[in-house]
Simulated scan of single mutants.
Amino acid sequence: MTKRYSIAAIPGDGIGKEVVPAGLAVLRAAAARAGGFALDVTEYPWGSDFYRATGRMMPEDGTATLRKHDAILFGAVGDPDLPDDLTLWGLRLAICQGFDQYANIRPIRLFPGIASPLVGADAAALDWVIVRENSEGEYAGHGGRAHRGLPEEVATETSIFTRTGVARIMRVAFRLAESRPRKHLIIVTKSNAQRHGMVLWDEIAAEVAKEFPAVRTERVLVDAMAARMVLKPRSIDTVVATNLHADILSDLAGALAGGLGLAPTANLNPERHAPSMFEPIHGSAFDIMGKGIANPIGTFWSGAMMLDHLGEPAAALMITDAIARVTAAGLLTADLGGKATTAEVTAAVIAAIEGRNL
Results as ranks from 00 to 15, higher is better:
H147D: 15
Y102T: 02
N267V: 11
M318E: 11
N269C: 14
L150C: 09
P80I: 09
A226G: 15
L260I: 13
Q194F: 10
A155L: 09
V154L: 14
L126I: 13
T65H: 13
D237Q: 04
I160H: 00
G90K: 03
L176Q: 08
I323F: 09
R195Q: 15
W201I: 04
I160S: 00
L91Y: 06
H196V: 15
A146S: 14
A324H: 06
I350H: 00
G12P: 02
W46E: 11
E218A: 13
I248N: 01
V208W: 02
N134L: 11
S116D: 10
A316E: 02
G137I: 01
S179M: 02
F278R: 07
S48P: 04
D237S: 14
A274D: 07
N267C: 10
A226V: 01
R219F: 08
D13R: 06
D70F: 04
N192S: 12
A103G: 07
A94N: 15
G290I: 04
R28E: 12
D223G: 08
K210V: 14
H196S: 13
E211Y: 05
P313A: 06
E211V: 09
A155I: 12
A214N: 15
D251Q: 03
E279A: 12
I72F: 05
N357A: 15
A22C: 02
L249P: 08
P112W: 05
D237T: 04
